[in-house]
Design a binder for these strands. Structure first.
Length: 308
DNA sequence: CGTCCAGGTCTAC
DNA sequence: GGTAGACCTGGACGC
């Protein structure tokens, strides 16, 4: 038995050896920066709190260590040896390290507009559960970003379980969200009309009438994008925008995220010329099942300064 | 102080 | 199947 615990580390490579740009992954999309997740720009780290199958949630800081390796700094008390694999598995899921981007990188490398991305862009930070990402996405709809932050922060602060050592709180479980009263959604989280959507979604997931995690686990042959989209659109408060956003996090990149941020950003990059949704979809249609990812990377390329 | 609208969705025609 | 109107909230504006 080792006298000292080995450091917690994540190997930064996709399933087929694809490069992983860790910093760009941290900055892959806005929802990654919602509680309990937080991008620490100064330390170039990502901090979050995740629930584990057993025991209290854990708060961690992830940062690049050496080439191809990320270090996981565990906050709070030492982690039991037997709990390490579960924690690392959750963090691999959060960093989406198991998504095979090799086919996309082949397409990107052959495209002058997108060749830069093949260096390790396109891996989206995710929440530990699809449920968490769906809730957060619903909280981005039809409101300013400040409102999204207020809603999600309240959910975590008031309904989330505290992590070991008290360094943060995990996102609330479906059961905890289902048990919260209407008055909490109305007066504390101030979710407005979304409150009813969130409660009924949480109740359905808690009762196992809805299985969102299956959407992440099922392979495309079994559950094609059309079916994933159909199931997401059936959820209360989830429309075309929200479905496309969640699908991007699921690695289902056929749909474009079209909303009040992406449309003007596209127009700006397009020489200030506004384009209709149909025109935008047509422009990215050649990317096939990667159309949504190509669109998103086109829009967010300037979120990280090019290395070159 | 009213109006508009933000990383839309739902319902009713 | 496509399109108005309503919808919580609260900053940002114009007056």
């Amino acid at each position: 038995m080792a006298s000292m615990a080995a450091p917690l580390e994540l190997v930064l490579a996709g399933p087929r050896g694809e490069p992983v740009d860790l910093w760009r992954t941290f900055l892959s999309h806005g929802v990654a920066d919602l509680p309990p997740g937080r991008v620490d720009e100064e330390a170039r780290a990502y901090e979050t709190t995740v629930a584990l199958p057993v025991g209290k949630p854990r708060t961690v800081r992830i940062r690049a260590q050496s080439s191809g390796v990320a270090a996981v700094d565990l906050r709070g008390p030492r982690l039991a040896e037997r709990a390490r694999p579960a924690l690392l598995a959750v963090l691999r899921r959060v960093l989406n390290l198991d998504e095979d981007l090799s086919a996309f990188y082949e397409v990107a490398a052959a495209d002058p507009e997108l060749a830069w991305a093949a260096a390790g862009a396109g891996r989206m930070v995710r929440s530990p559960t699809v449920f968490e990402d769906v809730v957060k996405t619903i909280c981005t709809t039809n409101c300013a970003w400040s409102a999204t932050q207020r809603m999600v922060t309240a959910l975590v602060d008031h309904l989330g379980d505290e992590s070991a050592g008290g360094h943060g709180r995990a996102f609330p479980t479906p059961a905890a969200m289902a048990a919260a009263r209407e008055s909490f959604y109305r007066n504390v989280a101030r979710t407005g009309y979304r409150g009813a959507y969130l409660r009924s979604l949480a109740a359905s997931v808690a009762a196992r009438a809805t299985d969102l995690e299956e959407l992440r686990e099922a392979p495309p042959q079994e559950l094609p994008d059309e079916e994933v989209e159909r199931r997401l659109l059936a959820l209360p408060g989830v429309g075309p925008y929200a479905a496309a956003h969640v699908m991007m996090l699921l690695g289902r990149h056929s749909r474009l995220i079209l909303d009040s941020w992406t449309r003007p950003k596209y127009a700006r990059l397009n020489g200030g010329v506004a384009a209709s949704d149909v025109e935008i979809v047509a422009r990215f249609a050649p990317y096939g099942r990667f159309a949504g990812l190509a669109f998103w990377l086109y829009l967010t390329r300037d979120w990280v300064a090019d290395d070159a």
